[in-house]
Design a protein around this nucleic acid. Structure first.
Lengths: 194, 194
DNA sequence: ACGAACTGTCCGTTGTAGCGAACGATCGTG
DNA sequence: CACGATCGTTCGCTACAACGGACAGTTCGT
């Protein structure tokens, strides 16, 4: 019901510029490109890119689109702050919706918008580490709800421990782990492909 | 190395302008605002808004942000084409995937393509009938995996009984029912909005 | 040590995004 | 029918986004 589209939204123009600046700098650093290289790849001026990265420019959407294309990321990655590595919702923390007769209690765990594909898995795990054989496509996000037992999940460098009823979301395009901590651990896995 | 992030992307600047133009026109029409009203609400010039809606402008991100705010939609709604019609491809059986060490058994329950929004709920139900108060938008589909207890679900005229571990999908835009048959029935509900 | 080839930053110029004001079109109302 | 009100449109004007080129601070080879 309640939308609450996302997290911290830029409120003023200043914050918006800083957000774009930070995103571009970070993405360019990740790709290892130099300022001139990226400017050339995106077919924009070096000074233009510099101004954007410095936060003292209000780039047009065409310029920004060229940048996003050259960086190989969707448009919104430049405009919205990156989501944290792992988002955990502990049992009971999620907003609860109850019907009139109070026969049903629904906890909204997550909401995905504009996704191309979603898969839902029923997971049964035995204790022991289990690394995903094939890393998924860039941009995939995994959502895990533990329905029985205890589970350690997340990106390899930042795993979290979930109890029964806990929920977590994390990027699935990098190295990540699933490790049941007790016998007969069960979970529902929802994979979100961009 | 070409992106191919998602669906139909604007390839050139021309298409991008037309996309933004169409989105703004449509959203403004939906909100019932006049051009002058929206321009005033977004604190931008009427002529600016007209140019954007006509597709002969390359608006800056600040202008576009102000527009998205005034329209009450996330930024990306103006830049990415609206999600195409829903086409649900349901997999009847649940193929089982097992990793090398046999510590994890994953059953693919369903796969949704090209959906605009997906919500995941953790459900706790007490025995007794429970009719959904507000029927969802046309085209929504609900997917239910019972993780504990027994549950009777489905469209009011065709409910089915699910045991623990069973999974079902059914349209959620009509009259439908949730009824736990035993105490402490739990389920994971995935709602798929077109 | 010395260029050569880079890095990112700072100018001068130009095209245009964005603005307010003026414009004709359309619609009710006295 | 004439009138004000509102619709979307068009027209200069100004500010600035975007450009190429010049600039200083690096890491390379030889």
């Amino acid at each position: 019901m309640l939308d609450a589209t996302s997290t911290s939204e830029p409120i003023d123009a200043q914050a918006l510029r800083r957000q774009v600046a930070a995103a571009v700098r970070q993405l360019r650093a990740r790709s290892g490109q130099s300022l001139a290289e990226l400017a050339n790849a995106a077919a924009i001026g070096k000074s233009t890119l510099h101004a954007i990265e410095s936060g003292d420019a209000n780039p047009g959407i065409e310029t920004l689109w060229a940048l996003a294309s050259a960086l190989g990321v969707p448009f919104s990655d430049l405009l919205e702050p990156p989501s944290p590595a792992v988002r955990v919702t502990r049992r009971g923390d999620a907003p609860c919706v109850t019907d009139a007769e109070s026969t049903m209690h629904a906890h909204l765990l997550t909401s995905m918008r504009h996704v191309a594909r979603v898969e839902v898995y029923d997971l049964l795990l035995h204790p022991g580490p289990c690394r995903d054989a094939d890393p998924h496509h860039a941009g995939t996000i995994e959502h895990v709800l533990v329905t029985a037992g205890r589970l350690r999940v997340g990106p390899s460098e930042a795993t979290v421990e979930l109890d029964t009823g806990d929920f977590a979301s994390f990027p699935g395009d990098g190295q990540h782990r699933y490790e049941a901590l007790v016998e007969d651990t069960r979970a529902v896995l929802t994979i979100e492909y961009p």
